[in-house]
């Protein structure tokens, strides 16, 4: 991959994979290129095509993927936090097509909120609640956006990078430093 080390893999401008990745690059991305001419396309190392969209285009992209391109199976929603970039969160939606046995990843960058896709995929219900709980991203239009993993009265969103790892300090020098600051990167 040509992404330089030290930057998150979730950087913008996804470089395309070299010829070694099967199937051939144009074939993999061609259907998306026709359907989403303005979106940024790319392929990650796992061979999964990814489509980067703006927040406003999310619902329509997902609807077209489901209805026109056959990605009828919902797999996952998750987020990656990088506070050094603005907007800090990148949401990743993963869908699957039963016809071609392939995944597609839709990326959206957001600082705060995105529209909810529960109308399109009811399975996203709990996944969006989890992202809300652990990252604090608000999903507009979600039927019941409340905490799912943490207790209801928990304050803070644990998976954010500025949230400390917590726990208690242990009497070994490495872990004392780690658990005090929550950041092991040196």
């Amino acid at each position: 991959m040509t992404t330089p080390p030290g930057t998150l893999g979730a950087a913008p401008a996804e470089p395309v994979v070299e010829e070694a990745a099967p199937p051939a690059l144009p074939a993999l991305l061609a259907p998306f290129g026709d359907a989403f001419p303005v979106a940024e396309l790319g392929v990650t190392q796992d061979g999964i095509a990814s489509i980067r969209v703006e927040r406003d285009g999310l619902l329509s992209t997902i609807r077209r993927l489901r209805d026109e391109l056959g990605y009828i199976r919902f797999i996952d929603v998750t987020a990656v936090d990088d506070p050094s970039v603005d907007p800090r969160f990148e949401l990743q939606y993963l869908l699957y097509t039963m016809a071609e046995h392939r995944w597609v990843r839709v990326r959206v960058e957001t600082g705060e909120s995105v529209p909810s896709i529960t109308d399109l995929f009811p399975a996203a219900n709990w996944y969006e609640r989890e992202v809300f709980d652990l990252f604090g991203i608000h999903f507009e239009g979600h039927p019941k956006l409340v905490r799912i993993m943490m207790p209801d009265d928990w304050v803070g969103h644990p998976l954010r990078k500025d949230y400390p790892i917590g726990g208690e300090p242990v009497d070994f020098t490495v872990t004392r430093a780690v658990y005090a600051t929550g950041d092991r990167r040196g």
């Binding site: 991959m1 080390p5 030290g6 979730a10 990650t44 796992d46 797999i75 998750t78 990743q92 990167r185």
Partner: peptide
């Protein structure tokens, strides 16, 4: 650095780890 999602068929279904690496010794 890069990101990978590679699921396997577990006894319960599709089990996958989505790993984002930034090139350092700890995952991002």
């Amino acid at each position: 650095a890069g990101e990978v999602y590679l699921p396997v068929e577990s006894p319960r279904g599709e089990l996958g780890f989505y790993i984002v690496s930034d090139g350092s010794g700890q995952p991002a």
